[in-house]
Computed example of a mutant assay.
Amino acid sequence: MFSIQAGWYSGRFSDAALTAERRERFARTAIELVRTYNFDGIDIDWEYPDGTIRESDPHNLVLLLSEIRRQLDDAERADDQRYELSMAASANPSVIDSQEVGAFSDDVDFLNVMNYDLHGTWDERTHFNAPLYPVPDAPNAKPTFTADHAMRYWASQPIAKEKLHFGLPFYGRTFENVQNEHPSDHGLFNSFDSASSVTYDDIQQNLKPQSDYEYHWHPDAKVPWLYSAAEDTFVSYDNIDSIANKVDFVKSNGFGGAMCWELSQDPSNTLIGTMHDRLH
């Protein structure tokens, strides 16, 4: 898929979708690239058309997807092959609420729900990057900021469940200078000074081998973490066990599939292999 992204609230997608002329040109030039490089379709990664840039963005998204689908249909007839249209989708309920899902559901083949970045440097306390389920006793508990809630919320929208794909992170987040208030916390739900992202490969190659990084598993959230008391560092990430749980969630709840962000963060194919094995 040829995926098009324009930066976090950059306004560029808002500009491109604003008029019929711009939408026609966007679709036409994108399809030219699809044909040139023999892609299977187009993926739209607009973060986010929720009305923040322009009030008309949610509706203009519908018009943009409709125009792309119309031109893809023409290209299918001309090229005698199938072209897909997909879109990255937010896990945030407030963004989902802004979308005219029923108006574009027939035009898209699937949505990739980005079930990650649910917690990070913007929080006051350490938490999990991509929890599957909520942690009831967490001091910064946000039950709506879980993968389970995001998928079920999307499933309540007027779109077929098989068009919903579960997004899995191949990266985690490190929280540094953690103020571990109690030894039994192992860094969890504690204040911190800074945070950054870290790939699964980096965690496996450089953090886990260090003896002071202790492995922990949360029975409620169904995700692991590492904690180093010596370095006051908390690391939230996904491993083969949490990936397996999430893929099983996809299967048991009738969703269409799973996606990941992103392949280069797992050069050993450990996580993508787990996804494949569990799905098949």
Rank of each mutant, 00 (worst) to 15 (best):
residue 221 A to L: 14
residue 246 K to Y: 04
residue 136 P to W: 14
residue 99 Q to W: 08
residue 194 S to H: 11
residue 73 D to A: 05
residue 197 S to A: 06
residue 218 H to W: 13
residue 242 S to Q: 03
residue 100 E to K: 15
residue 136 P to C: 15
residue 197 S to F: 02
residue 79 D to N: 05
residue 275 M to K: 02
residue 181 E to D: 12
residue 271 L to N: 09
residue 171 Y to I: 06
residue 226 L to G: 13
residue 81 Q to G: 00
residue 75 A to D: 03
residue 146 T to D: 02
residue 133 Y to N: 15
residue 278 R to P: 00
residue 266 D to T: 02
residue 4 I to S: 14
residue 30 A to D: 03
residue 36 T to I: 01
residue 118 L to T: 04
residue 121 T to S: 11
residue 248 D to E: 15
residue 120 G to H: 03
residue 198 V to E: 01
residue 46 W to G: 03
residue 151 M to G: 07
residue 235 V to H: 13
residue 106 D to V: 02
residue 18 L to G: 04
residue 61 L to M: 05
residue 137 D to G: 10
residue 245 N to T: 14
residue 235 V to S: 12
residue 15 D to K: 11
residue 50 D to A: 06
residue 148 D to K: 07
residue 170 F to A: 00
residue 43 D to M: 04
residue 237 Y to C: 09
residue 100 E to R: 14
residue 233 T to K: 14
residue 226 L to P: 10
residue 22 R to K: 15
residue 149 H to P: 03
residue 240 I to K: 13
residue 265 Q to H: 12
residue 143 P to K: 11
residue 173 R to W: 05
residue 138 A to V: 13
residue 215 Y to G: 02
residue 219 P to F: 14
residue 117 D to Q: 05
residue 228 S to I: 06
residue 268 S to E: 14
residue 244 A to H: 10
residue 232 D to T: 04
residue 191 S to D: 05
residue 102 G to K: 08
residue 134 P to K: 08
residue 256 G to V: 12
residue 206 N to I: 01
residue 25 R to M: 14
residue 201 D to I: 00
residue 17 A to C: 11
residue 154 W to F: 12
residue 107 D to H: 01
residue 75 A to N: 02
residue 236 S to I: 12
residue 2 F to T: 12
residue 180 N to R: 03
residue 75 A to Q: 04
residue 51 G to V: 06
residue 160 A to Q: 13
residue 26 F to W: 11
residue 136 P to R: 15
residue 216 H to Q: 14
residue 12 R to D: 03
residue 82 R to T: 08
residue 254 G to M: 15
residue 267 P to K: 07
residue 74 D to A: 13
residue 203 I to E: 00
residue 170 F to Y: 11
residue 119 H to A: 12
residue 107 D to M: 01
residue 240 I to E: 15
residue 90 S to V: 12
residue 135 V to C: 14
residue 61 L to K: 01
residue 238 D to A: 13
residue 61 L to T: 05
residue 217 W to R: 13
residue 184 S to H: 07
residue 52 T to A: 10
residue 191 S to A: 12
residue 164 L to V: 07
residue 144 T to L: 09
residue 199 T to M: 01
residue 246 K to V: 02
residue 164 L to R: 05
residue 214 E to S: 08
residue 187 G to T: 03
residue 279 L to E: 01
residue 24 E to Y: 12
residue 249 F to N: 12
residue 186 H to R: 13
residue 18 L to Y: 14
residue 213 Y to T: 03
residue 93 P to Y: 06
residue 208 K to G: 00
residue 14 S to K: 14
residue 229 A to G: 13
residue 191 S to N: 06
residue 109 D to E: 09
residue 228 S to K: 08
residue 70 R to C: 00
residue 47 E to N: 05
residue 201 D to N: 07
residue 246 K to H: 13
residue 65 L to D: 00
residue 194 S to M: 08
residue 114 M to N: 00
residue 245 N to M: 13
residue 134 P to E: 12
residue 212 D to A: 02
residue 119 H to D: 02
residue 105 S to H: 02
residue 190 N to V: 01
residue 76 E to L: 09
residue 263 L to S: 07
residue 217 W to I: 10
residue 17 A to D: 12
residue 43 D to K: 01
residue 250 V to G: 06
residue 66 S to K: 02
residue 148 D to G: 08
residue 101 V to R: 06
residue 9 Y to W: 07
residue 6 A to V: 07
residue 209 P to R: 08
residue 187 G to K: 05
